[in-house]
Design a protein around this nucleic acid. Structure first.
Lengths: 198, 198
DNA sequence: GTGTTTACCGAACATTCGGTCAGTTGACAA
DNA sequence: TTGTCAACTGACCGAATGTTCGGTAAACAC
């Protein structure tokens, strides 16, 4: 019954991880700038000063959250299935994985999608995100050159509409037993690719 | 040459309208909560206190901006062309007009799309916006009952994806001589309705 | 029991916030 | 030349902001 080292569930209290996940929740409710450390403390059930025992400050909290979303996007882009095969199939795979990531890490991705570049932290995140946008833009362009997407709309515009649709999921999706990431990705691919192909 | 009353262009200086339009620009750059009255004053080229000569305060500035976007949406929804004819055609008309409005009043609509409900002003705006969402949701459902949209995806989900795509335009669109609202609406309708119909 | 560590509190910090107000400026009318 | 008035300044207020710091209670190690 007794575990040798590091008991399975330690005593009550927070750690950097629990502070981060609760903080990100509040950031998404009120917006990062609209959230005070007092708000976070209330949500954590501690005083303001206790937060600084676990994390260096408000902006670091944001930085860690944004990295969690961005790392997911880059892992996805680095996968073999995003690099081999027909461009249209690579694109569909990336779209499906993007939906999955968005739902898996919903609060983190939501936060990323709302960043406007107000600080060095936010600017760095925007830059990394743009890198991903360039990547998916290349995929759509490749599919266009392949002749598998409609030729009457600019590929760059198609990319923005397609991933605009994906990202808009963060605005309304709430986890529920009925709606899995797979089902949602299916519906999105049906609609977007139904009008994308030709 | 001389105009009888109220000269065509008065002396320099601001008025409530110019303060609002510049303020909305800054709100969109830095976020409403991330914008201080000091920031606004800098953008206007006056001191903080001068702003209060023209407008009652920060929150009123937001309220007026949000109303400008919401009024547009409700005018659109009240139009005869949104009420007569086949549901699928009413829907297409509403989508096209939504794109046009989004571009016509880009800063105001952008601001609206980012509201999270932090104050009474924001909550009221969210409520009005949700009213519009219910309206378009009804249009898609009517089209589904009409049999003009694909039956294998829930109409409520289709609504969210469709208007998620429309709203996502605010994230990247910047006015340019090349890209008119009409062209953009054409591209969006091609893609979205191409996968929507059946 | 004695130290050490973990997780926290309460008070205070410098700064910034949205907002107020008494006065100043400069264009225009008479 | 004087008076009016729209448009603005500069000094200021109380409250809220993110952060720091000295202290402390409870759990643990020995």
């Amino acid at each position: 019954m007794a575990t040798p080292t590091s008991a399975p569930s330690r005593r009550r209290g927070h750690d950097p991880e629990s502070v981060l996940s609760i903080a990100v929740g509040v950031f998404n409710e009120r917006g990062y700038d609209g959230t005070s450390m007092e708000d976070l403390a209330r949500a954590l059930g501690v005083t303001k000063s206790a937060i600084y025992y676990h994390v260096p400050g408000k902006e670091q909290l944001l930085a860690r959250a944004l990295d969690r979303a961005l790392d997911g996007l880059f892992e996805l882009a680095a996968d073999e299935r995003a690099a081999t095969g027909a461009a249209i199939e690579r694109l569909e795979w990336v779209v499906r994985q993007s939906v999955r990531l968005l739902i898996d890490r919903l609060p983190y991705v939501t936060l990323l999608l709302r960043v406007r570049g107000n600080s060095a932290t936010e600017l760095a995140a925007l830059e990394r995100r743009q890198e991903f946008d360039v990547f998916v833009g290349g995929l759509v362009r490749a599919a266009a050159e392949e002749g598998t997407v409609r030729p009457d709309v600019d590929p760059a515009l198609l990319t923005r509409l397609l991933f605009g649709t994906v990202n808009s999921i963060a605005e309304w999706y709430r986890p529920a037993p009925g709606a899995s990431a797979e089902d949602l990705a299916d519906a999105l691919v049906k609609m977007a690719f139904g009008g994308l192909l030709r």
